[in-house]
Amino acid sequence: MKSGKRTKGLSVEAVVATGVGIAIVFLLKRFLPIPTGVPNTTIDLGEAFIAFLGSVFGPAVGALVAFFAHLFNDLSWGDPWWTWIVADAIFGFFIGFSQRFLKLKTTPLTKKKLFQFNLLQVIANVICWGIIAPLGDILVYSQPAGKVFLQGITATVTDILSVGIVGTLLISAYAKTQTQKKRLTKD
C-alpha cells in the first residue's frame, strides 16, 4: 500500500536527513574542532556525524551531507578547496554503504557488524584522505607531494579516530533505540 506518486531521486526522508545533516555537520566542523595536542591538527567530529548519517540513510545522503557541509565550512572561511570537498563527498558515499550490512532499523547490532563498519571506515578514510585528496592537490593545485601527503595522512589519522570512536558510539547508541523485539517486563 505504498503511494504511487513516487518521483525519481531522493526520498522525502533522505531530503530531510540531508538538510538536517548538513546543518549539524557544518556546525561541528565550523565551531567544534577538537585539538589533538599536535599543533594545527584537530579532530573533526563532523566526520563522525557523516558516518552516522551514512550508516542510517545510505550513500547518497552521506555524500551530499559531506559535500555541502564541507563546502559551507570552506565558504564560511572565505575559501573553497575543491579537492578536499570532493574527497569528503566520496568518503560520505563509501561510508554510506555500511547501511547495507548494518541494517540498524531492522536488525540488532553485533560485534561483527561494528568490526565491518570500522574496517570500511578505515579503508574509506585511507582512500579519501590518504590518496584522493593529496593526489587531487598534486594534479589540480600543483602542490608538492611531501606537503600534501603530510596533510592527507594527518587527516586520515584524525578522521579514523573521529569515526572509530565517536561514530561507533553514536551508531551503537542509535541501534539500541531501534530494536527491542524482546518483551519488556516490570520487575
Binding site: 531522493l10 538538510g19 538536517v20 545533516g21 548538513i22 546543518a23 549539524i24 557544518f26 556546525l27 555541502f68
Partner: peptide
Amino acid sequence: FPYKISYAVELSLRYIPDVI
C-alpha cells in the same frame, strides 16, 4: 541542480539556527 538536492540545502539553512 535536482530540486530535491536544492531543497535539502534550503532545509539546512533553515535548521542551522535551530541546531545551534
